[in-house]
Structures are given as C-alpha cells and as structure tokens.
C-alpha cells in the first residue's frame, strides 16, 4: 500500500501540483502572480509543479469538452495530485479560455484538490471570480480548499518589468494557502488509491 511516512507526514511519492495561468490576454498581470505561485510551490520539499499557460494549449474553438482534448494537457492533469488556478476577474467572471480548457477533461480531475488564486486590478483580489468558479470545480469532480489566494491591485503588487513581488505579505499568505492544499492533496491521494466505494 502506498501510504504516508508516518514519521514525517510526507507522502512517499512527491505531490505534483501544476499551476494553471487562466488567461491568454496580452499584458496580463496574472502572469506575474502565476510565476510567483509556481515558485512558492516549487520551493516545497513535498511537491513539484509545472506552470501551464492556457495561451499555449492547443484547443480549437469549433468544438468543446473531451472532443478537443490536448493530449499533453490531459496527461499533466492525470499526473496531478492537486491544481492551482490563477484566475483574473473579468467583469466579475472567469476567462472563457480557462473554462474551455478545464472542460476538456473529466476523469483526470476526479477527487483531486484545487485551490484558486484570484487576481484583480481593483480591490478584493478576485473574490467574485473565485465564488463563481466554485460550482464549476464541484461539477468537474475537483475538491476545493477553504483558503484562497487573493491578489488585489495586481499591477501595483509586482514590478511590471521584472515581475518581482513588491508586497512581501503575500509570501506568508500564500504559504497558508499551499499548506492547506498540500494537506488536502495528501488526503485525497490516499483516498483515491486506498479507500474504495463498496
């Protein structure tokens, strides 16, 4: 049985937690956020990550769902133990390209953890887009955590040229978010692999 190392609380296999940058738009501030989040996850000893840019996915607009799977994206989702979505708030909603990409898989997500990082140009750090995404996550079989990442005033939070973080408080805030996601990812991986419906 692939259980956990009870002495350290670490899974025997490292967790794989890809970060999805959820907007293809030019000039996106979310790119700095996604790079920061991916670096924070990569620094964790128990987890590996990969940054996925929806702009780089090969998904035709003429159809939808699993009919348009991008094989590399689907394979990455299959390998994932948890996901982090970095999502800007556009008119209170989520980018259509992100929904288009997420809808191209299903079995790849079932009983995996997801954390959402909201990004906004104004105050509140994408809280409205996070709320809007919750029912979508549930329908895809993903399990949401109760910490969110919130990046208000994104243009002022990162150096626009270098992408360097200008608000150090985000480091500790994101650490709490990742802690919760890692816990949920460990629990759900154990459950997927060992706890059966009878």
């Amino acid at each position: 049985m692939d259980a956990m190392d009870s002495s350290a609380g670490l899974p025997e296999k490292p967790l794989f937690i890809p970060v999805i940058l959820g907007t293809p738009r030019k000039g996106r501030s979310s790119e700095h956020v996604a790079n920061f989040v991916a670096a924070q996850v990569a620094a964790r000893p128990e987890a590996g990550t990969e940054l996925i840019d929806v702009r780089a996915l090969s998904l035709p607009a003429s159809d939808e769902g699993e009919a348009i799977k991008d094989p590399a994206f689907s394979a990455t989702m299959m390998r994932a133990d948890a996901l982090i979505l970095v999502v800007p708030e556009y008119n209170h909603g989520y980018p259509g390209m992100l929904k288009h990409a997420l809808d191209s898989n299903l079995k790849e997500y079932i009983h995996k953890a997801v954390g959402i990082v909201g990004v906004s140009a104004g105050p509140w750090g994408g809280t409205r887009v996070i709320e809007n995404l919750l029912p979508v996550m549930r329908e895809l079989g993903l399990v949401t955590i109760f910490w969110d990442g919130n990046f208000p005033h994104a243009q002022k939070t990162f150096d626009k040229d270098t992408g360097a973080l200008l608000e150090p408080a985000h480091v500790r805030r994101l650490e709490k978010f990742v802690n919760e996601l890692v816990w949920m990812a460990k629990v759900l991986r154990y459950g997927r692999e060992n706890v059966a419906i009878e």
Partner: peptide, 14 residues
C-alpha cells in the same frame, strides 16, 4: 481502487 461515481452528461450526448 474504485473511488467515485459521476453522471457524465456530455458522454450521454455523444
């Protein structure tokens, strides 16, 4: 390990 059941509406359409 069998761990989930779900209604897949898209599959039924196809």
């Amino acid at each position: 390990n069998f761990h989930a059941e779900k209604v897949d509406y898209s599959k039924a359409l196809a």
